[in-house]
Design a binder for these strands. Structure first.
Lengths: 216, 216
DNA sequence: TGTACATCAGTGAACGCGCGTTCACTGATGTAC
DNA sequence: TGTACATCAGTGAACGCGCGTTCACTGATGTAC
């Protein structure tokens, strides 16, 4: 949809420079990594003078920040596409959907390592993205876990912190695969382990003991 | 130990420029992030000409690569210190030690975010560190899980992929806290959940069902 | 419908900078005899 | 022990570059009357 706007007009006024800049920045970040993208290059590839960019973004971080926001959206989009391809209310479908959330997350990282690193890099820590840029992906995970709970696949003792554990494990394994520190299968092993872990099913008393010891 | 060597000599020949360069690079990366450190600045802070660096490192990546290797070592050092502070063969001590591995990992990330990001950034993916730079930390985790198994704290069904799950979860939560996407308590919630998850204790038949469904 | 004018969104030249790296060089060191 | 000499580890000047950003400007657009 951005591309329509980009091609819509030519001449002195561009038409939709903002969209074109973000889209071109996306291209260059994907290809070279966020650290090797310059304002001048982005402008040049669009055929616009470097200074034109400053009519739309106050500085480089702002452009990359805007890009980061759209990448978070892309990630959530892909997760939603994956989810929609698995209809049905059965336990099997629910489990497949839950898994798909993690697999889509990992696939996005694998297919777009530089974009993924932009989202979860220093710019994120500096708060250059929307505060809630990642909230769609988070919400999908929450819903997935609610569905899993509904079919009895989540031990109540594990439920409260499940979102955090699952996100951390999926994010960590994705990152470590990108870093070349874990093999690509890791994501599936992690998802296997997570499902087992969520199931829990230790007797309540036993769980209590575990927690007590752990807190000491 | 590096500082002795650095201060050992003065004059035309430095004495141990390699160690001094790495140590100064460490300082600057910690303060400004790896992307904002230059060869010239490192050399200047040591009081040496920029070109001197090239007698010891072929290029910038090589210097940062060498630094990365030492940071992985620092991380493992801190984990070992934490482990040694918890002696004893009791189940309680074992659990505390296991937890300490994760807490030390997180603390290192929290106290040295820029160094941590250097270790697990693009340079790592490019193979600029030793292939086995992270192997000490990994080995500590393996040993920790073996200890945990020995006291019966790890369900045999969960054991095979436990290292990967645990590393991914600890790494992921550390990263997400650095990114400002999870609150600092996340690491403790994750460690709680991991201990419960390792305990597992679902009946074997039930586990099988779970796995079968998951693989579909 | 036509026109005046404010506003918007570009241009292009320039500023000032720090960067990674190379090169020819030289002072210091250590070793063989 | 003294000396010649190869090697090592520095210097300092320079190359060539691309960068983020600013500035005075101008062409295009849209709106009020």
């Amino acid at each position: 949809m951005a591309s329509e706007a980009i091609l819509a007009k030519a001449g002195y006024h561009h038409g939709d420079l903002v969209a074109a800049l973000i889209s071109q920045a996306r291209e260059l970040v994907a290809a070279n990594g966020a650290d090797h993208v310059s304002m001048r290059e982005v402008a040049a590839k669009i055929g616009v003078s470097p200074s034109a960019v400053y009519h739309h973004f106050p500085d480089k971080d702002a452009l990359l920040g805007a890009l980061g926001r759209t990448i978070f959206d892309e990630l959530a989009d892909e997760q939603e596409v994956a989810l929609k391809s698995i209809p049905g209310k059965s336990a099997t479908a629910t489990r497949k959907r839950f898994r798909a959330i993690g697999v889509a997350y990992f696939s996005f990282a694998k297919n777009n390592p530089n974009l993924f690193r932009l989202c979860f890099g220093p710019l994120c820590a500096m708060g250059k993205f929307d505060e809630k840029a990642n909230s769609r992906a988070w919400q999908l995970l929450v819903s997935g876990l609610e569905e899993m709970s509904a079919i009895g696949a989540v031990d109540p003792a594990v439920r409260p912190n499940a979102e955090i554990l699952v996100w951390a494990a999926i994010h960590g394994s994705s990152m470590l695969v990108l870093d070349g520190l874990l093999p690509e299968e890791a994501i599936h092993l992690v998802l296997d382990s997570i499902e087992v872990a969520l199931q829990g099913a230790a007797p309540a008393t036993k769980l209590k003991t575990v927690k007590k010891v752990a807190k000491k």
